[in-house]
Write a protein that binds this DNA or RNA. Structure first.
Length: 194
DNA sequence: GTCGCGATAGTCT
DNA sequence: GACTATCGCGACA
């Protein structure tokens, strides 16, 4: 994935970027061990147009990487405990981003289980996803094209479609259906974590 | 399987 | 001083 390809895929509308990311894979290699997740759940945050976005009130030390170019990784600490990953869209300077909420493990499950301290529920939430992949604040601001956390383009698995729902855990602008989930065709009830 | 609740600390007001 | 873009556990059914 080159920077040019990143800009093309992510540099436009953040909602399109979020849809595009479903089916893509996130790969990390730390301590010579690879872990990889196929994304099936993401949320869009639209910077200064979006009261739920960390960037709504402008740039701060924490959210600086959100103002970087498309394909920048924005990692922040949530509830003082968990690390959450975003991929910056639009930009530079626009501060739109897509929160990576979950996926399914496709490589390195044993390593994920060790990092998570359990064998089930490895990647079915934002904090769990980051922990399973070994991502933390050190990776904030790196590029998913050239950095230690790589984005691998990919399509949805056959038989899956994209469903939209309201975002989770946000109190402002909670009515915006900007959560995107990959679900099997015919499964209209939303159960992405199964 | 689903629901409710407490822990926990960085960030902003 | 208040507020989280959460998780895991224990009660239920």
């Amino acid at each position: 994935m080159t920077g040019r390809e990143l800009a093309e895929a992510l540099g436009g509308d953040v909602l399109e970027a979020a849809r595009w990311l479903l089916g893509c894979r996130i790969r990390t290699v730390f301590d010579e061990t690879a872990t990889e997740v196929r994304l099936n759940e993401v949320e869009a945050y639209a910077g200064d147009r979006d009261p739920a976005s960390h960037a709504y009130r402008g740039q701060t030390p924490r959210n600086t990487s959100m103002f970087g170019p498309p394909g920048t990784l924005y990692v922040y600490r949530s509830y003082g405990i968990h690390w959450c990953m975003n991929i910056v869209a639009a930009g530079p300077g626009i501060a739109h981003a897509v929160l990576l909420r979950g996926g399914e493990p496709v490589a390195g499950e044993a390593t994920m289980a060790r990092r998570r301290g359990r064998r089930d529920h490895l990647t079915d939430g934002p904090g769990k996803c980051s922990q399973a992949l070994g991502v933390d604040g050190r990776h904030d601001g790196t590029s998913v094209a050239t950095g230690p956390v790589r984005l691998i383009p990919g399509a949805l698995a056959p038989g899956y479609v994209v469903a939209t729902t309201p975002r989770i855990g946000v109190s402002r602008a909670a009515d915006r259906p900007w959560r995107f989930v990959a679900v099997p065709v015919g499964d209209l009830t939303d159960s992405p974590t199964r």
